[in-house]
Design a protein around this nucleic acid. Structure first.
Length: 446
RNA sequence: GACCCCAUCGUCCAGCGGUCAGGACACCAGGUUUUCAUCCUGGAAACACGGGUUCGAUUCCCGUUGGGGUCGCCA
């Protein structure tokens, strides 16, 4: 039975490169009806705080990467690591030495087999190294702490790991690990080393790049399914041209053959597009909570506010919002009169000939409308356009600018209906006032 | 520096000896729409270079160049 694992060391962040490794482990296990496991490598007391560990769990839960068995915490495995070290010492696979003559006392050093080594990598093919390049290495520090290599291998054996799928920065370590598995008398797992994810410039991610952490994407309003899909396809393809795939679809066709062996650049624009695709497929009820969270964050929503109103707003916004974190910015004028006015748009649409007169006339007609709804509004505006022999757009644009301060947004008549009669009247009046004040005598025809 | 890995449009992928080198994102043009988004149509855009092998190389081999990884009593 296939058993894969994700073995992060909790640092307080989960990098997208790491989580992609987790995704591939998960996919491979699913593909082969195996199990996907989690091991927290929390042996460094400096970095391994409870918060850091929680961050790992949160990231995995958010992406739907729950392990199939309870996670193993490496910090609880100290005894097992040390026992394995003793066995290696007893069997002559290790020896004590004050390596490098540091004076720190003797540490335990693993003795490499002294032969050339080769292992098969599912992605890179056969990888080999001559004996001369394979040096002995420390497995237990002079202070008695087991080193990464030992702990990693001992725990993989304990967990029954059959496939090690990880970043290719571990390739050089693999020779050591293979030797360790053999010295410990265990089966050597299959290996698959993934190329790294690099930034838009093609360089390795550094702190300066920011936004390379799973939590950042969640905070910015990306959908977990979209990030999962995008990351899975960054370096892997099902072999055909499909790009939007459910986890199940990916799991049925995942294979190392489709995994690229060169580094992939992270392209946020494509992620954004993919997020939009997922967002569009998602029914309003399923996304409204997250839209509201963004409104709340920007002070546009308080508990107890009119939920039906927000739903109407989101409904007419359609699929224009592609990121939850854009919600407030794109809908602010529905929630407050204190919204930003795009000066360029204002000048272009309201300071042109006739605009003020049109708005004045339309405001009067709106006020006398028996039913203040989109259909009636549209009929009114179209009728006015016909009477005065002006193009509809000459009325629509000033109106939109007057009531929303911008030139983008949902259909004008639905928008006005949702805003309501009072607010519309107020905003048109204010726009007229501003237009008069800002217009030069020659362009002000009113 | 030593050892190892990698190389198709700007980006991500398809191609696994014979293709008009395909798709997606982004970009450009046009259409639909009251704006925007959506949607539709069209366009520009790549096999890093040099040698082989072969009737024939993007594809196989070797170099060059360019990227990257690893060289801890870190993980």
């Amino acid at each position: 039975m296939v058993r894969t694992r994700f073995a992060p060391s909790p640092t307080g962040h989960v990098h997208i490169g790491n989580i992609r490794a987790a995704i591939y482990n998960w996919l491979y296990a699913r593909r082969h009806g195996g199990r996907f496991l989690l091991r927290i490598e929390d042996t460094d007391p400096e970095r391994s705080t409870p918060e850091a560990v929680a961050t790992v769990h949160e990231a995995m839960e958010w992406l739907g990467l729950q392990p199939d068995e309870p996670p193993m915490y490496q910090s609880t495995r100290r005894q097992a690591h040390l026992e394995a070290a003793e066995r290696l010492l007893a069997a002559g696979h290790a020896y004590r030495e004050d390596k490098g003559g540091t004076g720190r006392g003797k540490c335990l050093v693993f003795r490499m087999p002294g032969t050339d080594m080769v292992f098969h990598d599912e992605i890179k093919g056969d990888l080999r190294k001559p004996a001369a390049d394979l040096r002995d290495f420390v497995i237990v520090r002079s202070d008695g702490h087991p080193v990464f290599h030992l702990a990693n291998v001992v725990d993989d054996i304990a967990m029954g790991i059959t496939h090690v799928i990880r970043g290719d920065d571990h390739i050089e370590n693999t020779y050591r690990h293979v030797a360790l598995f053999q010295a410990l008398g265990a089966d050597v797992p299959r290996y698959a080393h993934l190329p790294m994810i690099v930034n838009a410039k093609g360089k390795p991610y550094s702190k300066r790049d920011g936004a390379a952490y799973v939590g950042d994407f969640r905070d910015r309003g990306f959908l977990a399914d979209a990030l999962f899909n995008y990351l899975a396809l960054l370096g892997w393809s099902p072999g055909d041209d499909r790009e939007i795939l459910t986890r199940e679809e990916m799991a049925t066709c995942f294979s190392f053959e489709g995994v690229q062996s060169s580094p992939a650049r992270f392209d946020e624009r494509k992620l954004l597009w993919m997020n939009g695709e997922y967002m569009r497929k998602m029914p309003l009820e399923q996304r409204e909570a997250q839209h509201i969270a963004d409104l709340r964050k920007h002070g546009l929503w308080r508990d107890g506010d009119d939920l039906a109103y927000v739903r109407r707003v989101l409904e007419i916004m359609g699929d224009r919002i592609k990121l939850f974190s854009d919600t407030a910015a794109q809908t602010i004028y529905f929630f407050t009169d204190n919204y930003p006015v795009d000066e360029k748009v204002f000048q272009k649409t309201l300071l042109c000939e006739g605009a003020v007169q049109y708005l004045t006339d339309l405001a009067v007609r709106f006020d006398t409308l028996p039913e203040f709804n989109a259909a009636a509004l549209e009929t009114t505006v179209r009728a006015y356009a016909a009477e005065h022999n002006v193009k509809l757009s000459r009325l629509v644009h000033p109106l939109r600018a007057a009531v929303s301060g911008t030139d983008v947004g949902p259909g004008l008549f639905e928008m006005i209906e949702v805003l309501g009669r009072e607010r519309t009247r107020r905003r048109i009046a204010r726009a007229i006032e501003r237009a008069r004040a800002g217009a030069s005598p020659t362009t002000d025809v009113s």
